[in-house]
Nucleic acid binder design. Structure first.
Ligand SMILES: [Fe+3]
Length: 911
DNA sequence: AATAAAAAAAAA
C-alpha cells in the first residue's frame, strides 16, 4: 500500500501546555503558497519587477509566473525531513503510523537545528533540478528556497549539512521530498530552462515573492488549519486561495500615464493650481524623463524654492509610465521633513489618474506612529478592510493593514520615508529581499542628496548600483554637487561616465542624455561679507549698528555650547524677548514648537517682529524656509556657508533701511591675519581642518557673494583638487588634506562592515548573499547595524518629578504639560503620545565611548512598570528632572549635572 | 582637543 504523504506536517499550533491544537499538512501549505504566489504575480507585483525577472527568461512573463509558483510550491519541501518532523512528537507519531518513520531521539540530536529545512531544501531542490537543467540554474533556484527565511546559508554550511544524512532522512523521506518536487513540476517543461541563468536581481526578487506568499499562506486567519485530531483530507485549494485573497484585499496596482504631452495640465491638476503653468525646472525634468533612452537616473540640482518636489513627482509619473513602475518611494533626510512631505505626497496621490480603487501609502520612519495623519490612515485601513467583499471602499489612499510594520510597510505603492529606509537596502540584514522588492517596483526619489556624508554615501552609492541593476528609475534632488560626487553617483547607478558640465540649476541623466543647464532666476541676492574676530563684543557691536532701525538677524554657530553662550550675552544686551535659541538639544516637542514659531515669524508670509535675533546651530541650515535681514555665521565648509547665506533676503519684502543690503559677518576664526586662517577649535572638531581651510581661502579673497550665480563655482573650487589660498598656506593645507583623507578612509572602512556586495556575475546564486551580515542579530540594541556614521547616540524620554516623588509630564510643554504620569498603572494612550514626544537626544559628551555605559546604567535606574507595559515607550531610557529642570546623572566615577531650560535647551557639565 | 545634525528596533 502506498504511503499517504499528506500525513507529512508543515504547520502546528500549540496550546499553553505545548500540546498541538491545530496542524496543516505540508502538501496543503505548499499548494496554498503556490496559489498565493500566482495571485501576487497576476495582481500585485509591479510590472517593472516582472519585467526585470522576465529579462532573464527571454522576456517571458508567463515563465516568471511559472517559476514563482514552482518555488512557492517547493519552498518548505524539506519539512519532509526527520530533523523537522520529530519536533512535534504527536504529529511525528502519526507520520510513523502512516509509514513515515523517524527516530524520536533525533529531537535532541546536537546537530538537529543545523539541518534546517531551508538548507535541506536547498540540497533537495538542487539535486532534483540538476537532472533537468544546468548546474548554475539548479544552484540558483535552490538558493531561493534556501533563502526563504530571509538569510541564505553559507556555501560551507551546505556541505556540512549534506553529511547529516540521519537528520535529513533517506528512504521514504527522500521519496517524500521527490514526490512533492515532482508534484510541483507537473506541467512544467524544464527543457525550456536548459540555458537559463538568473541574475542576482531576479533571484532576490523571486525570493521576496516566495517569502510573501509564505507569510500570507502561513496566516491562519486567511488559511485555516485542521484541528489537531483531524486526519489529513483534500481541501479545496482554489477556494481557500480565493477566500484568502479577498480577505487580504491588497490594494491594486497604480498604472501611471505619461504627462509630457501636457505638463501644464498635469501640473495644475495634481497640485490644485487652476491654470497653473510649470516652472522651468519642472518642464525640463519631465522632458529629460521623457527623452532618456531608457528610464534611469535623473539628477536635478537646483536651489530651494524652484519647485523641485513637484518636478520630481511629475518626472516620476513620466518615468513610471515608461518603465512599468507602480509606485513611488520618496526619501528625505529627517523625520520632520518626511512628515511634512507625507501630506504633500498624499494630496498628489489623491489627484493621480490611473488608480483602480484605493492605493496604499506608508509613512516610513522610526516615529511614524507619532504622526497623526498616518495613524489616522492606519485606523481607516483596519476599519475599512474588515468587510468580506473588501474592494469597494472608495477612499483614494489607504494604509493597508497587512502592508504595515518595518518589513512590509515599505511594500505599499507610495512610500514617504527617511533616507535610512532606502539605505537599508544596502545593509546586509535579514529579509533584505523584501526591501529590495519594495524599491524594485517603484520610482525612487531621493531629496537633499548634497546633505549626505561620506559614510552614508557609501550606502547610497551601493543602493544606486542595485537600483540600476533592477532597472529602477531614480530621481535625485540636490543643491549643487561637487563634480566628483556627481560622477560617482552616475557611475554607481549604471557604470557610465557622467556628462561633464558646469552650471546651476542643472538637470542631468544617465544613458548619454544631454544635460540641461537652466537659466538662473533673475531675482538674485548679493551678500556683503564682513570678517569679524571671534570676540562676542564685536558681534554685539555689529548687530547694534545694523539693527539700529530694527530688523531680524540670525547668528549661526557651529556648536551648541557656542549657541548657548552667545544667546546669554545677546539676551543681556537686547532683552530676552528679542532672542530665540534653536539647536538639537531640545525635547522634540519643544523643537517642533520653536521651528513652527520661526516659520510663523520669519517664513514667507511671516509676522515679522520689529527687532529680533535668532541664535541657532546648523538646524537653520536645512529645510526651514525662513528669511532674515542680517546674518552672523561661524566659518563652515563652503557649501554650508552658502546654504546659510540662502537664508538672507530670501523673500521679496520691505526691510529697515540699514539692512536693505544683505550682509553677513563671518566669525569663528582664531585670527584673520594669521597664515593660514584657522577656525576655532569647536568648528575644527566638527568639520575637520581641511574643509574649513579651503572654505576660508575662498572667503578671504572676496567681499561679497552673488546668489545664486556664485554657488556652483564656489562649491566646485572648495571641493576640487586644485590649490586654493596663498602660497604660505599650502603646507598646512597639505597636512590637513592628509588627515582628511585618512579620516575618510577610516569612515569608508567602517561603512563597509555591513555593506551589501555588488551585484556580481550571473553565475552566482544567493548562497552567502548577506554573509557576515547582521543576520539574526538585527534585533535589539547591540546588533543593530547602522547606515549613519558615528557611535550610538542616546535618546531619552524626559519627565519631571515633584517634591513628593510623583512623576508628571514636563511643566512647560505645549500640549499635556504638567499632567501626572502613573508609574505602575498603564499610561493612557493619549498621554503615551505626549510622553513619547518628550524625547531628547543626549549630547555627544554624554554618549561618548567611555562614559556611555555609565550614563546608560545611571538612566536605567529610572525604571517604571508603566513605561515598560506601553508599546510606544517600552525599552526607552528615561531622564527624570526635578522641579527646577535639573538632574544628576552619575554612575561610578562618571557624573554629569544637566539642566533643561525650555528657552535654552539642555545644558550639561561634567562633575 | 574637546564635538552638528541626523535615524533606529516581529515573522512565518
Ligand atoms: Fe519555511
Amino acid at each position: 500500500m502506498p504511503v499517504d504523504l499528506r500525513w507529512v506536517w508543515a504547520k502546528s499550533v500549540m496550546d499553553d501546555h505545548g500540546r498541538p491544537t491545530h496542524w496543516l499538512p505540508l502538501q496543503q501549505h505548499l499548494d496554498d503558497a503556490a496559489g498565493v504566489a500566482a495571485r501576487l504575480v497576476d495582481h500585485w507585483v509591479s510590472p517593472q519587477v516582472l519585467g526585470r525577472i522576465a529579462k532573464d527568461l527571454g522576456g517571458d512573463v508567463d515563465a516568471v509566473r511559472e517559476l514563482a509558483c514552482w518555488l512557492a510550491r517547493v519552498h518548505d519541501v524539506a519539512k519532509a525531513s526527520c530533523a523537522f518532523a520529530v519536533q512535534v512528537p504527536l504529529l511525528a507519531d502519526r507520520m510513523r503510523d502512516a509509514g513515515i518513520v523517524a527516530n524520536p531521539m533525533l529531537m535532541t540530536h546536537p546537530d538537529r537545528s543545523r539541518a534546517h529545512h531551508t538548507v535541506v531544501g536547498y540540497l533537495a531542490v538542487r539535486d532534483f533540478l540538476a537532472a533537468e537543467v544546468g548546474p548554475v540554474f539548479a544552484d540558483q533556484m535552490a538558493s531561493v528556497v534556501a533563502a526563504h527565511h530571509g538569510v541564505p546559508p553559507e556555501r560551507s554550511t551546505l556541505a556540512e549539512v549534506a553529511g547529516l544524512t540521519e537528520l535529513i532522512g533517506g528512504g521514504v523521506w527522500q521519496e517524500a521530498r521527490e514526490f512533492f518536487l515532482r508534484r510541483a513540476s507537473e506541467g512544467v517543461d524544464w527543457s525550456r530552462y536548459q540555458d537559463i541563468r538568473l541574475s542576482m536581481p531576479s533571484q532576490v526578487l523571486l525570493t521576496a515573492i516566495v517569502i510573501l506568499a509564505d507569510w500570507i499562506a502561513s496566516n491562519a486567519d486567511y488559511f485555516p488549519l485542521l484541528e489537531a485530531h483531524e486526519p489529513p483530507r483534500d481541501l479545496d485549494t482554489a477556494a481557500r486561495v480565493d477566500h484568502a485573497w479577498k480577505r487580504l484585499a491588497l490594494p491594486r496596482r497604480w498604472r501611471a500615464s505619461p504627462v509630457s504631452s501636457n505638463v501644464d495640465a498635469a501640473f495644475s491638476e495634481r497640485f490644485a493650481i487652476p491654470g497653473g503653468v510649470v516652472r522651468p525646472v519642472q518642464a525640463a525634468a519631465v522632458e529629460v524623463a521623457a527623452t532618456q533612452s531608457v528610464p534611469g537616473l535623473v539628477i536635478v540640482e537646483a536651489p530651494m524654492g524652484v519647485g523641485k518636489t513637484e518636478a520630481a513627482l511629475l518626472a516620476a509619473e513620466e518615468l513610471a509610465a515608461r518603465s512599468g513602475a507602480d509606485g513611488v518611494f520618496m526619501a528625505l533626510p529627517t523625520q520632520a521633513t518626511t512628515d511634512a512631505m507625507f501630506d504633500r505626497v498624499r494630496s498628489w496621490v489623491e489627484a493621480l489618474p490611473g488608480r483602480d480603487g484605493s492605493v496604499s501609502v506608508t509613512l516610513a520612519h522610526g516615529k511614524a506612529s507619532l504622526n497623526d495623519t498616518f495613524t489616522g490612515l492606519v485606523r481607516d485601513g483596519w476599519f475599512t478592510s474588515v468587510g468580506e467583499d473588501g474592494e469597494h471602499d472608495e477612499s483614494a489612499v489607504v494604509a493597508h493593514r497587512w502592508l504595515s510594520g518595518r518589513k512590509k510597510g515599505v511594500l505599499a505603492s507610495f512610500v514617504v520615508g527617511t533616507i535610512d529606509q532606502v539605505l537599508f537596502a544596502g545593509l546586509k540584514s535579514r529579509h533584505l529581499m523584501l526591501r529590495h522588492l519594495a524599491l524594485a517596483g517603484k520610482v525612487v526619489v531621493i531629496d537633499e542628496v548634497h546633505a549626505y556624508d561620506v559614510y552614508m554615501s557609501q550606502y547610497l552609492e551601493r543602493v544606486l548600483h542595485w537600483l540600476g541593476a533592477y532597472g529602477v528609475p531614480v530621481v535625485l534632488l540636490s543643491a549643487t554637487l561637487p563634480a566628483a560626487r556627481r560622477v560617482r553617483l552616475v557611475a554607481a547607478y549604471d557604470g557610465t561616465p557622467a556628462p561633464a558640465v558646469d552650471g546651476y540649476p542643472l538637470i542631468l541623466a544617465s544613458g548619454g542624455t544631454a544635460p540641461k543647464v537652466l537659466p538662473l532666476p533673475g531675482n538674485g541676492t548679493t551678500v556683503a561679507l564682513d570678517r569679524l574676530s571671534d570676540d562676542i563684543e564685536q558681534v554685539v557691536t555689529f548687530l547694534r549698528e545694523h539693527l539700529r532701525e530694527g530688523g531680524c538677524a540670525v547668528v549661526v554657530r557651529n556648536t551648541v555650547g557656542r549657541v548657548q553662550a552667545t544667546a546669554e550675552r545677546l539676551e543681556q544686551e537686547f532683552g530676552v524677548e528679542h532672542v530665540t535659541v534653536n539647536h538639537s538639544q531640545f525635547l522634540s516637542c519643544d523643537r517642533a514648537r520653536i521651528d513652527r514659531e520661526l516659520l510663523r515669524r520669519f517664513g514667507r508670509e511671516g509676522e515679522r517682529p520689529a527687532l529680533h535675533i535668532v541664535v541657532a546651530s546648523q538646524v537653520v541650515e536645512q529645510s526651514l524656509d525662513v528669511d532674515f535681514d542680517l546674518m552672523v555665521t561661524d566659518l563652515a565648509p563652503m557649501d554650508l556657508v552658502l546654504q546659510r547665506l540662502g537664508r538672507l533676503h530670501r523673500h521679496p519684502r520691505k526691510r529697515p533701511e540699514p539692512v536693505t543690503t544683505a550682509r553677513c559677518a563671518v566669525v569663528g576664526v582664531e585670527d584673520w591675519a594669521a597664515e593660514p586662517v584657522r577656525a576655532v577649535a569647536g568648528s575644527r572638531a566638527v568639520y575637520g581642518e581641511h574643509l574649513l581651510l579651503r572654505s576660508v581661502a575662498l572667503i578671504v579673497e572676496r567681499d561679497k557673494v552673488a546668489l545664486p550665480q556664485d554657488i556652483a563655482p564656489l562649491v566646485q573650487r572648495a571641493y576640487d583638487e586644485d590649490p586654493v589660498g596663498p602660497e604660505s598656506w599650502q603646507s598646512a593645507l597639505a597636512r590637513a588634506k592628509k588627515r582628511a583623507d585618512d579620516d575618510e578612509v577610516r569612515r569608508v572602512a567602517a561603512a563597509r562592515t555591513f555593506l551589501l556586495d555588488k551585484v556580481g556575475s550571473s553565475r552566482k546564486s544567493l548562497i552567502g548573499w548577506v554573509r557576515a551580515g547582521v543576520g539574526d542579530a538585527d534585533d535589539g540594541r547591540e546588533g543593530l547595524a547602522q547606515v549613519r556614521d558615528g557611535g550610538e547616540s542616546l535618546e531619552v524620554l524626559v519627565v519631571q518629578q515633584d517634591r513628593h516623588g510623583g512623576l508628571h509630564t514636563p511643566q512647560w510643554i505645549d500640549r499635556g504639560g504638567g499632567d501626572p504620569v502613573p508609574t505602575d498603572l498603564p499610561i493612557e494612550p493619549p498621554q503615551e503620545r505626549v510622553v513619547a514626544a518628550c524625547s531628547l537626544r543626549l549630547p555627544r559628551a554624554l554618549s561618548n565611548p567611555g562614559v556611555d555605559l555609565a550614563v546608560i546604567s545611571a538612566l536605567e535606574k529610572n525604571c517604571f512598570p508603566s513605561f515598560h507595559s506601553s508599546p510606544l515607550l517600552k525599552g526607552q531610557l528615561v531622564l527624570v528632572l526635578d522641579v527646577n529642570g535639573e538632574a544628576d546623572i552619575g554612575h561610578g566615577d562618571v557624573g554629569f549635572h544637566v539642566r533643561y531650560d525650555p528657552r535654552r535647551g539642555l545644558v550639561h557639565e561634567r562633575r
